[in-house]
Amino acid sequence: MTITVKYFGIIADFTQKKEETFALNEVNHSIQLLQSQLEKLYPEIKSTTYSLAINQKLTNQNAILHDQDEVALLPPFAGG
């Protein structure tokens, strides 16, 4: 299964990427498991608060990922 992860704001600064693609072996890969893997790859992510979205819809950590899903890590945004 292949997913795309998009990074925004300070999280993009931490990863030095706007997005990347991951090939996941597990069929029922949870967003929580992905989050744990990303925090191991990019430990700085743990130091910030962020929301998760799958296919442009906010989600919780119990959501299950599917092939071709797009996951976004969204830090708090300041508005004006």
Rank of each mutant, 00 (worst) to 15 (best):
I10E: 07
L24D: 06
Q56T: 09
H29R: 07
Q16K: 15
E19C: 06
I45A: 11
F14R: 02
F14K: 07
D13N: 13
Y50E: 11
V5L: 01
N28S: 14
A12E: 04
K17L: 13
F22M: 13
P75Y: 02
E70W: 00
G80M: 06
T21V: 13
N62T: 13
A63D: 10
Q68D: 13
N28F: 06
F8H: 02
A63S: 15
G9V: 01
Q16L: 09
T2F: 01
A63H: 08
T48N: 14
F22L: 15
Q37K: 14
K40V: 15
I54W: 05
V71K: 07
P75N: 09
D69W: 02
I54N: 10
E26I: 02
Y42C: 13
I10N: 03
T59R: 04
L73F: 12
T4P: 04
K57V: 10
E26R: 03
I31Q: 10
E26Y: 01
T2G: 03
L41M: 12
A72M: 05
I10G: 04
E20M: 04
F77S: 11
T49K: 15
A53T: 12
D13G: 11
S36G: 08
Y50G: 10
P75E: 07
K40E: 15
L73A: 08
G9H: 01
T21H: 09
T49W: 07
N28L: 08
M1G: 01
L38Q: 11
E70R: 08
K6Q: 05
H66W: 00
P43A: 12
T2R: 07
V71G: 11
P76F: 03
N55R: 05
Q35N: 15
L24E: 09
I10M: 00
Q61G: 09
I11F: 01
N25T: 11
I3F: 00
K40L: 14
A63M: 08
Q32A: 15
V27Q: 13
G9N: 00
T4Y: 00
Q61N: 13
K40R: 11
K46V: 15
Y50F: 15
L34N: 12
A23P: 02
K46M: 11
T49S: 14
A53H: 10
E26H: 02
G79W: 05
N60L: 08
G80N: 06
A23L: 09
L65W: 02
K17V: 03
I10H: 00
I31N: 10
S47W: 05
I3Q: 02
L74C: 06
V5S: 05
G9W: 00
T2M: 05
I11S: 05
Q56I: 04
A78K: 09
K6G: 04
Q37V: 10
I31Y: 03
A72I: 06
G80R: 07
G9Q: 01
A72D: 09
A53E: 13
D67L: 00
F22E: 14
E20K: 03
Y50A: 10
L58I: 12
N25G: 14
L34T: 11
